[in-house]
Write a protein that binds this DNA or RNA. Sequence first.
DNA 1: CCGGTAAATCTACCCCGGTAAACGAACAAG
DNA 2: CTTGTTCGTTTACCGGGGTAGATTTACCGG
Lengths: 127, 127
Amino acid sequence: MTPLRLGKVQLQIMQILWRHGRVTARQITDELSQQSPIAHSTVQTLLRKLEAKGAVAHEVVDRTFVFVPLQEQADVTESAARDLLTRVFGGSVYGLVAHLLRHEKIAPDELARLRQLIDKEGQQKKP
Amino acid sequence: MTPLRLGKVQLQIMQILWRHGRVTARQITDELSQQSPIAHSTVQTLLRKLEAKGAVAHEVVDRTFVFVPLQEQADVTESAARDLLTRVFGGSVYGLVAHLLRHEKIAPDELARLRQLIDKEGQQKKP
DNA sequence: CCGGTAAATCTACCCCGGTAAACGAACAAG
DNA sequence: CTTGTTCGTTTACCGGGGTAGATTTACCGG
């Protein structure tokens, strides 16, 4: 299980795949182009590279490719998060969270939910 | 102020720079080689690339280069964290922290300190 | 049957991180 | 003076992300 490193656009493609489950290259191009224009062939190239890597697969429906994600979102999220955690924060969850609290603005209700979450986590000492 | 993208080894070099303030290329090579062997010329090449990017500078002392970091650790940390936050967690601090709590094992005392930190953050509503 | 349309493939760049050998300069020891 | 060591510089290569034009393939409508 190699960590599977994904680039910026590749991640965006995977996210579209995860949201919709089954999409054509054209759909991906359209959705990506809403943010910044991108050539259809570029998307196709990246999809081929993703497929070569085992991150996606395609089925042929009506002579057009329908792509499906193979790599789980949870896995990619996990490896990306752990990557930042270890490389930048030396593995300290406290360090990362402290940084987020200090440098990112957080809505008060989010903060409240966070406190609840941590409390619940603390309760799970004795199962 | 471009985000300044750094690779894996480049980040390690910057971290050594940040720890020591002023180091020679040799010191960096030695320190990096404790983890995984790396050629001295590789380190020098990366240092040149970092300098070309404005991340470091060098002074000449006794005919050898002494490198100093120009880019602040806080800035790099910040951009890396925000990068993950926006690209993977859609900007949701809650999402990222929740992920960390769920998937990373955290020492009980770290959890306690986290709760304190969040409480203190909550108090700063009315200054 | 023919031309348009749309999809897929081929091919070719550029950039940059990482890797390192090869070369050159300068000094230190003998 | 010659040789070896230690720097720094030059140069080259690989891999992979990103980009996209050009080309082929296949269908569909007139």
